[in-house]
Amino acid sequence: MAQSALLKSSIAKKYWMALTGLFLCLFLAGHLAGNLQLIFGDALQFNQYALFMTSNPAVKLLSYLTYFSILFHAVDGILLTIQNKKARPIGYAKSNPAANSGFASRNMAVLGTLILVFIVTHMVNFWAKMHFDKKMPVYATTVEMMGQKQDLYVTTSGTYIPVTQVAKDSKEAEEIGAQLYIDHGKDFYNTQAKIKVGEGYKDLHKITFDFFKSKAKLFGAIPNEGLVFTILYVLCMGVLAFHLWHGFQSAFQSLGINNKFTPAIKTFGKLFAVIVPILFAIIPLYIHFVK
């Protein structure tokens, strides 16, 4: 690596910003494709997808890369911003930055920090529930049998188990004499043998719909929290759009790519910056107002 540390120099930091930023753009595209199933797919499809995303080894590798990218991008971005502030200890009495640069380009750190806050709350609301919440609802479908509605759990092997036969946990199973109970938030166990007989799907679909349709009071004071969450989500996508508006093409410049393809990269970046956040934002709007 010759004399330069590929970590410490100003330009190297920019490479890392650009690489992690572009990787996060790829992640956004993938994440969006998954989320759109909330509109175009049914609940089972979405939950199957959610299970795949939390269990497939290749996806796991990608998800670790994503966590790493977010952390590295955020830490590096904050370090750069602190350095940049130090480079001008005394500011100008009068300055006119709008005369020579765009709003987004001047506010990447603020926009990024807002995105970080969003990512954390978003992960608490969905990712953490999916991964750690033992009380996640298990997906059940309703079918009509002989004129009667019946709720059935769907197992990952494609079989059905009537909801009425399954207790919430082993204790309840013994009390009410149910043959089966649920453990680990999704596994069906035989009450006598205590062995796993099947696996259900964690109902992330329901969690998502309940979240954006919730009529509960936020902090016990603000009515219709589902609407509040929807509005906040849409605003955050606006923030993301500004970050990408500058960020996408900026990453190529940081990596030293400025040539005859640059006008095309800039156009694509701006389309990406507008279209991706809009599509993300449509999903909670659709859930809250249409479904």
């Binding site: 010759a2 004399q3 330069s4 120099s9 100003s10 330009i11 930091k13 920019k14 750069l80 350095q83 940049n84 130090k86 480079a87 001008r88 930055p97 020579n100 640069s101 765009g102 380009s105 001047r106 990447m108 500058h246 093409q249 900026s250 410049q253 940081s254």
Partner: peptide
């Protein structure tokens, strides 16, 4: 390029964020 960038960093200049100003 290595020497000039190192000197640039040592002098305390900031990092480009491609604002284009």
């Amino acid at each position: 390029v290595l020497n000039m960038v190192r000197q640039m960093d040592e002098e305390g200049f900031g990092n480009c964020t491609n604002t284009g100003a």
